[in-house]
Design a protein around this nucleic acid. Structure first.
Ligand SMILES: [Zn+2]
Ligand SMILES: [Zn+2]
Ligand SMILES: [Zn+2]
Ligand SMILES: [Zn+2]
Lengths: 159, 159
DNA sequence: GCAGGTATTGTAATGTTATAACATATCTAC
DNA sequence: GTAGATATGTTATAACATTACAATACCTGC
């Protein structure tokens, strides 16, 4: 089931799976999923909305896990560098990864109605981008593919 | 000459053409290309690098054209809304459009070596994005497609 | 177990990007 | 020339991000 995050689903299971996979991969690859990092991942997993670094920071502060911006940014850097989360450039915010595997260059769909962000792992858009870049002799190191609009639910309600 | 901005070219002509087209389109569509807006467009056209709002603001200040952030942001908003310039989300910065026509959803190639930004008007990436979104029932209003890496010149030098 | 190096966290200060809100001026249409 | 719309001037503040350095935790070899 190609979960892009908008369809109805058992989100508790969704969270549990993601967390378990993260733990497993961290162990396998010798990554240290420390308390702050793990907690930030949990916070991002709470729903499929993107959260800003300062939203995360506020939560950490409330829990006594860190008081200054670098605490949040460092955890988010760790999570994004290792593919547990992604940064949404359009929003200057972060979402938990819903595609599990390590390296990937996904595309995102950002709903202006409900603020959810859907992820698609490998896309025609990504392939197209690589092809265009190659044709121009451009060597791609990182790519950003984001669509902003209305998710199926929100488009239906005319919102 | 599908100018993506990286190839060698007569940049004076490049600027003159863009400016003339902007004037023409502004007149045709009843848009007001005021002194500040026109000057900001000129500043963006100076080269094919992206410039931050505060870079622009500094230039305006030096020229006595405006002293506060909103002056720069408003001009940039006008230019981007009307397709004379584009915002590069990855850089929180702005480039002049090199594709002339009105509505378009381009992709950008951001060089980490020389900081130039190349634009491609309509791309396979854009088409792919639309297709993926449609398949997911997502209604796209705006899209962001940006590749970061090395341009042909910079990739050659191993930089 | 303990020294020494590496990775992580704590904290203060600061830098950068962006907007809200409201006053004033300019343009356009009638 | 007056009214309404559009654009600009200005203050203040919000939102996002990093630098720099100190302290601690952790691993690893001995
Ligand atoms: Zn879920
Ligand atoms: Zn939605
Ligand atoms: Zn040029
Ligand atoms: Zn370059």
């Amino acid at each position: 089931m190609s979960a892009h995050g908008f369809e109805r689903h058992d989100h508790k299971r969704c969270v549990a799976t993601a967390l378990a996979e993260a733990e497993a991969r961290a162990t396998a690859e010798g990554l240290r999923l420390t308390p702050v990092r793990r907690r930030v991942l949990e916070l991002l997993l709470e729903d499929h909305r993107a959260q800003g670094a300062y939203d995360i920071l506020a939560r950490l502060q409330a829990e006594g896990l860190g008081a200054q911006p670098p605490v949040a940014y460092r955890a988010l850097d760790f999570l994004t560098k290792n593919g547990f989360a992604h940064r949404i450039e359009r929003l200057n915010a972060y979402v938990a990864c819903t595609e599990g595997a390590g390296e990937h260059a996904p595309m995102f769909m950002i709903c202006k109605g409900c603020e959810r962000v859907g992820e698609i792992g490998e896309t025609a858009a990504g392939a197209g981008l690589k092809a265009e870049a190659a044709a121009a002799g451009f060597a791609v190191e990182r790519q950003v593919i984001e669509a902003e609009g209305l998710c199926p639910d929100c488009a239906g309600t005319g919102a």
